[in-house]
């Protein structure tokens, strides 16, 4: 009885996953195994329903992994893949460095102030993401706000728009809440008597932080880093708006293949490779979480 009910409860999320994840995923996987063609839509094979079962069979026979082989041959894809992972990894590291002190500071505030500060971390989400990234263009452009400020204090101007630095800045800015919130959640939950116990047993406040607070906050740091790393590796808007043409990221490659080259199979294959790459850290994270909760 109970089992039947829990089975029923699983139907809705299962249906959701099937419609909005499994089906589109299979569609993209099928596309990646097709060949590009000058047609509408721009790929073959397509199932010829008039032939019946034979048509379906012919369709599956025409699917191959040729596009994937093409990806490994062209250094553009490999470079973009490596560069995406590198930029996302650096940004995740920077986010940890910036986000940890913020989360720690908020968690150590009196409870009433905490609410307001958490709100302040979330507040930027109330404005459009796109507008906020455009604002960075206005700040970073050669005659922008940043250089105006630098000139005012007598410093030489910097020209970082359309560089990797600008992309990193944009990523750290946009993803900061995703780093701060999971870190804050573990830090805020931490029993204060643990710190007192560490100090009682001979730790200076700094030692108590490194030996107790920090190791216990690692699950939050891992959650935050992954929560940021995964979407950042596939990020399109930020590198497109803030990064120059030399900033290679898979998100842009997918866009270019789809819309500029009309090479749907290549775009789909890149998307599948990105997904496969990101499954690895997710699995690692799952394992680590399972270890913690055990």
């Amino acid at each position: 009885m109970r089992r039947a009910r829990s089975g029923l409860a699983a139907i809705l999320p299962g249906l959701w996953l099937a419609i909005f994840f499994a089906f589109p995923f299979l569609l993209v996987a099928k596309l990646s195994a097709s060949d590009s063609a000058l047609a509408i839509p721009p790929y073959t094979p397509r199932i010829d329903w008039s032939q019946g079962l034979a048509g379906v069979r012919a369709f599956f026979a025409a699917l191959d992994g040729e596009t994937y082989v093409r990806l490994t041959r062209d250094s553009l894809y490999v470079d973009a893949w490596l560069s995406s992972l590198r930029i996302a990894a650096i940004a995740a590291g920077l986010l940890l460095l910036v986000g940890y002190p913020i989360a720690y500071g908020v968690a150590r505030c009196p409870p009433r102030l905490r609410q307001a500060l958490v709100m302040a971390v979330i507040l930027p989400f109330w404005t459009s993401f796109l507008i906020r990234i455009y604002a960075w263009i206005a700040i970073l452009k050669p005659a922008g706000v940043l250089n105006g400020l630098l000139a005012a204090v007598g410093l030489p101007p910097v020209d970082i728009l359309n560089t990797e630095a600008a992309v990193l800045l944009g990523l750290v800015y946009a993803y900061l809440p995703f780093m701060v919130l999971p870190l804050y959640a573990v830090l805020e939950r931490q029993d204060e008597s643990l710190i007192e116990a560490a100090q009682d047993l001979g730790c200076t406040p700094l030692q108590a932080f490194w030996r107790v607070t920090f190791p216990l906050s690692l699950p939050g740091a891992a959650a935050g880093a992954l929560l940021c790393f995964i979407p950042m590796a596939g990020e399109f808007v930020i590198p497109d708006l803030l990064g120059g043409s030399e900033t290679l990221m898979l998100g842009r490659v997918i866009w270019t293949e789809f819309f500029a080259n009309r090479d749907w199979p290549a775009a789909s294959a890149v998307a599948i490779v990105l997904l496969a790459t990101l499954v690895i850290p997710i699995l690692l994270f799952e394992r680590q979480q399972a270890k913690v909760t055990r």
């Binding site: 008597s193 643990l194 560490a198 009682d200 200076t204 107790v212």
Partner: peptide, 17 residues
């Protein structure tokens, strides 16, 4: 400060690491 006192406490919550 607490870390320099030769006084140790057993916490009500035990506060085990």
């Amino acid at each position: 400060p607490p870390h320099r006192r030769p006084v140790h406490m057993m916490f009500q919550s035990y506060a085990l690491f």
